[in-house]
Amino acid sequence: MSRLELRHVRKAFGRLDVLADISLSVGAGEFVSMLGPSGAGKSTLFQLLTGAQHGEGEMFFDGTPLDDHGRHFAFMPQRDALMPWRRILDNTTLGLEVQGIRRKAARARVAPLFAEFGLAGFERHFPAQLSGGMRQRAALLRTVVQERDMLLLDEPFGALDALTRTAMQRWLEQMWRRHRWTALLITHDVREAVFLSDRIYVLSARPACIVREIKVPLPRPRSLGGADALQTSAIEAEILDILLNPEPNPHSSKGHDHD
């Protein structure tokens, strides 16, 4: 049973086609990635889901059409978007406060999670006092405590250095195994997508359409080396091949001709 389902979603800004034809589904407790080149319009799709933009096509959640007030998603933006003027504790309660939960109750709900997110002892710090990895974990904590049906992760580790990023990917995979969030991840990092996902949608360059759906049957917990290394690199090579040798995009010519 799929929770999120998109059918032929399109979006254009003026005459610029950004999303040509996106159909996808995300099942309950499934970790799905959208992988595509930078500027392919991946973030635009999240804007459609969160109601910041409106496009064409059909979007369903649990079988009912998505409308603006259907608040199903907890959204984690590209940069951590922590508020510099709020202490880490108050940053993580932000979503709960917006939901109308009193500050004290919100804090009580968030506080026990600090240890699991590697942030214990940093509740009273300001974001500027934390390293990039810690800030991202705080941002993820702020996202998951909202207890929405589904997580939308927009290149959450894009701004981190390579070593920190790898550490964060391992940590996220471990966290996901424990919590089994339904998640949709946007990324342009092939390894990240393969390491974290159950399924991957590979997107074309703009105007974006889905060129391939790839299942990642690797066992969890995922590892960087070990027995699955061969299979992992085979999947990575397949995806890289799709991305680097694109078939002619059927939508890009259409986008220019029909005016």
Partner: peptide, 19 residues
């Protein structure tokens, strides 16, 4: 009014494996 401005000047915490 802006205590976080001065906090920003201090060294970021959390180096090592957790970064």
């Amino acid at each position: 009014a802006m205590p976080w401005e001065r906090a920003a000047g201090q060294h970021p915490a959390g180096t090592g494996p957790w970064r």
